[in-house]
C-alpha cells in the first residue's frame, strides 16, 4: 500500500500483509455503524466465530490497515445469531480519527483479533451496580445483561456529558432493575458524576454486593474510592497501552496490589481497590508527544485534502 493510498476517506480495500500474500483471511467487514456524537461511534463487525466465543469483559485488537497500530478495544456487545461484534470508538487520536473517516458499512478492518483477556467473572452477587462512563457505557451493557441473566438485582449507573450524547437508554432499561443517568450539565438525570449515582444507590440499598465500573481511569478510580469506605467489592476494566495483546510484549503491565500484572493475559478486570491508578495514568501518557505529532500530521493532510480541487491527485500524507 503506497503512501498515496493512505489519505483519509480512502477505502480499506485490498491490502497486503507483511507476509506477502494479499489479504490472509480477507479482512473483517463492517456491517453497521452508528454515530452517537461528533467523536463517538459504534461499529458492528462481522466475525461469526468471535461472536460465538466472546464473553462480557473481553477485548479485541484492531488494525485499520497494514500501516496501522494495534489498538485494544473492549467488546461492547456481541450478537451470537447475527455473527457480529460491536465496538465503540472515541475518535481522539490519529488512528481512531482515521477509523471514523474510513470505517463505514462495507469497509473492512485489516486486522481484528480476539476475544482477548479473561472474561469478567459474573459472580453470584445478588445486588450489583454496573457503572459506565464515556467509552465504558457500551461495554458495561453486556455485564449488566449477564448479571441480570444470572438472577441479580441490577442497578445501572451511566454518565454522559449532556442529554444529546445519551445512547442505549432503552437497552439498559430492559436489563436493569434501576437505571440512573448522570450528566455533567444536568440536562438529563442527576447533575453530576457517576460517583453521585453510586452514592445514591448505596444509600438507597444497604446490601450492594458488588460494583463493576468501566470507563476512563480517572472515573474508575473515583468509583473505587467511593465504594472503599463501604467495603463493597469493586471490579474495574483496565485498558493500558498494548502491542500484541497476547502476553508477549509486557507493555500493558499494571501495578495491582503491589504486584506487576499484565492486563492482556491476567486481566483486563482487576479489583479496583488494589489498582495503582496513578501508575496506570502515567503509563497511558507514555506516547503523548508521538500521539500529538501523528494527529497534527493527520489533521494537516485532511485540510490539504479538503482544499484540493476535486479529482486532483492527492498529496503525500
Amino acid at each position: 500500500m503506497s503512501e498515496e493510498d493512505r489519505v483519509p476517506g480512502a477505502s480499506a480495500a485490498a491490502v497486503s500483509t507483511p507476509g506477502g500474500k494479499a489479504d490472509r483471511g480477507g479482512g473483517f467487514p463492517v456491517v453497521d455503524r452508528q454515530d452517537f456524537s461528533e467523536t463517538t461511534f459504534l461499529l458492528e463487525v462481522s466475525h461469526p466465530q468471535m461472536a460465538r466465543a466472546a464473553r462480557p469483559g473481553q477485548f479485541v485488537i484492531v488494525m485499520l490497515d497494514n500501516h496501522g497500530e494495534r489498538i485494544p478495544l473492549t467488546i461492547a456487545d456481541f450478537d451470537r445469531e447475527g455473527g457480529t461484534i460491536t465496538l465503540v470508538v472515541q475518535a481522539v487520536g490519529k488512528s481512531s480519527r482515521e477509523m471514523q473517516a474510513r470505517m463505514v458499512p462495507g469497509a473492512r478492518l485489516f486486522g481484528l483479533v480476539g476475544p482477548m483477556g479473561i472474561p469478567s467473572e459474573i459472580s453470584d452477587a445478588r445486588k450489583v451496580i454496573c457503572v459506565g462512563g464515556g467509552l465504558g457505557v457500551a461495554p458495561i451493557y453486556p455485564q449488566a445483561r449477564a448479571f441480570k441473566e444470572a438472577g441479580a438485582y441490577v442497578i445501572g449507573v451511566v454518565g454522559f456529558r449532556s442529554r444529546e450524547l445519551i445512547f442505549w437508554e432503552q437497552k439498559f432499561r430492559d436489563v436493569c432493575d434501576e437505571f440512573v443517568i448522570c450528566t455533567d450539565d444536568g440536562s438529563a438525570g442527576i447533575k453530576g458524576l457517576v460517583t453521585q449515582g453510586i452514592e445514591q444507590a448505596i444509600a438507597a440499598h444497604g446490601d450492594i454486593d458488588e460494583v463493576v465500573a468501566i470507563g476512563p481511569p480517572i472515573m474508575m478510580r473515583a468509583c473505587a474510592e467511593t465504594t472503599r469506605p463501604h467495603g463493597i467489592k469493586t471490579m474495574v476494566s483496565l485498558n493500558p497501552i498494548m502491542v500484541d495483546g497476547t502476553g508477549m510484549c509486557g507493555g500493558c503491565r499494571v501495578r495491582v496490589g503491589g504486584r506487576i500484572r499484565f492486563a492482556c493475559v491476567d486481566g483486563p478486570d482487576f479489583d479496583g481497590h488494589e489498582v495503582d491508578f496513578d501508575d496506570l495514568m502515567a503509563r497511558l501518557a507514555r506516547y503523548r508527544p508521538q500521539e500529538r505529532e501523528a494527529l497534527d500530521r493527520y489533521d494537516d493532510s485532511c485540510r490539504r485534502l479538503a482544499m484540493a480541487p476535486a479529482g486532483a491527485p492527492s498529496e503525500k500524507a
Binding site: E3, E69, K94, C249, G250, G251
Partner: peptide
C-alpha cells in the same frame, strides 16, 4: 520496556518508520 516490546514495535510494526507507520 521489554526487549520483546522493543523488537515487536520495530520489526513487526515498523515503529522505526513512524509516522509513516502509526506505531510509535
Amino acid at each position: 520496556l521489554s526487549a520483546n516490546e522493543l523488537l515487536t514495535r520495530c520489526n513487526l510494526m515498523h515503529a522505526g518508520d513512524f509516522p509513516s507507520y502509526d506505531t510509535p
